[in-house]
């Protein structure tokens, strides 16, 4: 329950991003603002401040004010980190959610067809899944991103620009299909040989009807338990891709890109990288706890893999 509440909070906060940026912080989180300044307690403060070192060489962005503008400080381009964090959360959660949803739909289709019809279809699909799964997930996602990131993707009349969020959504959904499809396929195979299905078949119930009436409703449990875990994996993958600058493209933000922005500032302004990281940990943890709870409630066996 606590995890659901946390997820709801995060989602709501992210949805309020434009409101915070426009009405509370009065900043544009997508425009570089190195020369700007803001007022705090009646004082005019430059966004870029002289460094803390004894000679005051170089400039660092302002640190957290813990107040409305620059609550968490600014990044190296003078943008409000708190506002970017909210906008970033919007993208991160959006991509994770839709990637997981798309992955579920595709892998459920693959898994059900492979598991239910068996034979040659199953063999072909399973081998394809084996092949896809042999490439490390992150490396696979990186490869797909790198070939599409430069020029976008053109399939026939459709073009997806490289800064379109659909690109990371498709890529993340694709790389996790083998993982999810195996779970579904295993479940369907068990069901297919369950006594009530065998009984229905021996009675001459059409295969399509068995699929819709006996198989689908019973696979739903596995899928429901899988959903939070897939979302968590998608969020982690998205943040990794964005961290490597091949996910969400500048100037748009995601939690991963903000951590990337914060890397150069890690020793002087650690808050820039810490805040989005904590946000990721909290959301992923909440999703994992939710997944655990669902798995216990629906009695589905634990099986998850990933890599770092």
């Amino acid at each position: 329950m606590a995890s659901l509440a946390l997820l709801a909070c995060m989602a709501t906060a992210s949805l309020c991003a434009p409101f915070y940026a426009r009405d509370i912080a009065h900043t544009d989180p997508f425009r570089s603002n190195v020369a700007g300044s803001f007022t705090l307690d009646g004082q005019q403060i430059d966004i870029m401040q002289p460094d803390d070192n004894p000679l005051h060489l170089g400039l660092s962005p302002v640190g957290p004010t813990w107040r409305a503008p620059f609550f968490l400080g600014a990044d190296s381009q003078g943008r409000d980190v708190a506002a970017r964090l909210l906008y970033g959360g919007r993208n991160s959660l959006l991509i994770a959610f839709f990637a997981a949803a798309l992955c579920m739909i595709l892998s459920a289709t693959v898994g059900i067809f492979a598991g239910f019809f068996g034979g040659v279809l199953d063999m072909v699909l399973s081998r394809i899944m084996d092949i896809m799964w042999a490439v490390p997930v992150y490396l696979f996602a990186i490869s797909l991103s790198i070939v599409t990131i430069a020029q976008g993707l053109k399939i026939g009349p459709f073009t997806i620009a490289s800064d379109n969020l659909l690109l990371p959504i498709f890529i993340i959904a694709l790389v996790y299909i083998p993982y999810a499809a195996r779970v579904v396929r295993g479940r369907v195979m068990t069901l297919r040989n369950a006594e009530f299905v065998l009984a229905a078949r021996s009675l001459g119930v059409p295969r399509f009807r068995i699929l819709m009436v006996d198989i689908l409703p019973n696979v739903t449990g596995s899928l429901v338990a899988l959903a939070p875990l897939l979302t968590a994996l998608a969020l982690l993958t998205e943040s990794a891709l964005s961290f490597l600058s091949i996910g969400v493209q500048a100037p748009a933000a995601s939690w991963g890109t903000i951590i990337q922005d914060g890397e150069g500032l890690i020793y002087t302004r650690p808050m820039v990288a810490m805040a989005p990281g904590l946000a990721i940990v909290l959301v992923v943890l909440a999703l994992n706890v939710l997944g655990d709870t669902l798995r216990d409630a629906l009695d589905v066996r634990d099986s998850r893999r990933e890599n770092g």
Binding site: A232, L236, S239, A240, F243, G256, I259, G262, E263, I266, Y267, P270, A273, M274, G277, I280, V281, V284, L285, N288, V289, D292, G308
Partner: peptide, 18 residues
Amino acid sequence: GLVGLSIPVFWLGQVANL
């Protein structure tokens, strides 16, 4: 264990560096 599973490794690396 669950917390460990939930931390992005690149971020944990940054924290460790910090």
